[in-house]
Each structure stands twice: as C-alpha cells, then as structure tokens.
Design a binder for these strands. Sequence first.
DNA 1: ATGGTGGTCCCACCA
Length: 265
Amino acid sequence: MKIATFNVNGIKARYGIVSDWLREDAPDVAVLQEIKSTDETFPREVAEDAGYELHTHGQKGFNGVAILSKRPVEDVTRGLAPLPGGEEDDEQARYIEGTVIGERDAVRICGLYLPNGNPAPGPKYDYKLAWMARLEARARELLAQEIPFLMTGDYNVLPTDMDAARPQVMAEDALALPPTRRAFQRLLNLGLTEAFRARHPGQPGHYSYWDYQAGAFERNHGLRIDHFLLSPAIADRMTDCTIQSDMRARQKPSDHVPVWLDLDI
DNA sequence: ATGGTGGTCCCACCA
C-alpha cells in the first residue's frame, strides 16, 4: 500500500495539480493538509472522480486536513482530545484519524497539521507545544491499545540540523527550537519510527518544503518538515519512504511536496 | 521578497 502526505496550500488553488497527481501517481491513501476549505466548500469531485473516498476536517480560510482513500475507511474521528486536567477542544481543524482496511491488515492513519508556532516565544508557540503534548497523549493511547498506526502530515518540526539547508538561519525559529525538538523526540522515545530518516540515515539535502521567496527551490534552500511516524508493527512493514521533490517544479506548485510511504500490508 | 484566502475594491492574516 502506497500512502502519501501532501500539504497542498489550498485545495482550490491546487485543484489541477492534485487531480493530475491522484490519477498519475495513484496513492492508495492521500493525507492532505492546509486544504483551506470547509467540509462544504471542499471540491469533492477532485477526489471522488479519481476513485477516492473523501473524509475532511476543514474550517474557513485556514488549516484543514483530509484523508482520501481507494481502500475502505472506518471509524473516522476529527480533532485531538483535550488533556486530562481540562483544556477546551481544539478550535483549529488540524487532525483527522481513520482506519484504512488493507488487503490483509488494517492501519489507523492519523493525519495532522501541527501548528507553526512562530513567533516564538509567544502565545502561538505555547499553542504549538500544547498541541504536541496532546499528540503525544494520543500516541500513548494507540500504543496502549496495541493498534497498528501511523501519524503523518506537516509537523512543522525540523528534527535535526540535517533537515534544514541553512540550520543557523532556523536556530531561533519555532520549527527548530529545543522545546520543539524535545517534544518531537518524546514521540520517538515512545518507540515510533521516523520513516524517511530510518530509510535514509545521515543523508542531508532532502527537503519537503521550500519557501516561495528568493528562489529557495532553485537553490535547494529547503526544510524537511513533513514526516511519517510509525508504530512498531507498522515500521516492520515499511518497504520504502521517498520525497517527490519534482512536484515543486510544476506550474503553480504548493510550497510543500508529497512524501511517500510504502507498506507491505 | 511569494502566495492563498477572505473581506472589500487594496489590505490584513497566515505560512
């Protein structure tokens, strides 16, 4: 099964690119972020005419996530639960889960758009760290229930300096600050595998995002911030993980490109 | 300095 994550930066602006991509590259499951649509204004036919089941969690103007699947999807849930101790529900549409039924086995797919967090420090950074704590709590639950799962999407996290073309420029950024990296490392310490780095250890220069400004793509001034985290049972089924960087060279591209995971399930 | 979106007719917000 081929699963792709793609921050599209607006599904309406990316209609043609996503339509062509689904037909030509044909992921079994596509996990989208920044759809910037509500559940009502998402152009459903871009998915359904290409043969996909569509599950959205959107809001007006910003954020929004979706799961597109050629395989049946069961038990779709939206949003991350508040931590015990009582915050409120997340008002921003950033998280969706569904169980995708493979040919032999099922996998719980968690699609996420983690808050950017800039400027840091500040309330937006506090929100990012609180959101990461909620995500960690959800990962602990799924592990405790022994549900095979993966968490994928735009993490807005640079795990190490190797994941930025110019790490010194990012040193004070919310994507790279020590509390951000520690929160990401706590996820890994639960026993999750970061798929791309596990398949390509010690290889710099591989990015999933390039700023629109100042010729960043042409200079390969990129960031690797779109990730797959795999539970142990799913990590055992990984056969490949790649970045589709050529998508950034198309007309009217997103600033992110798809990242692909191949699973033997 | 680039782009998407939404509310107004150029500007603010977000990345």
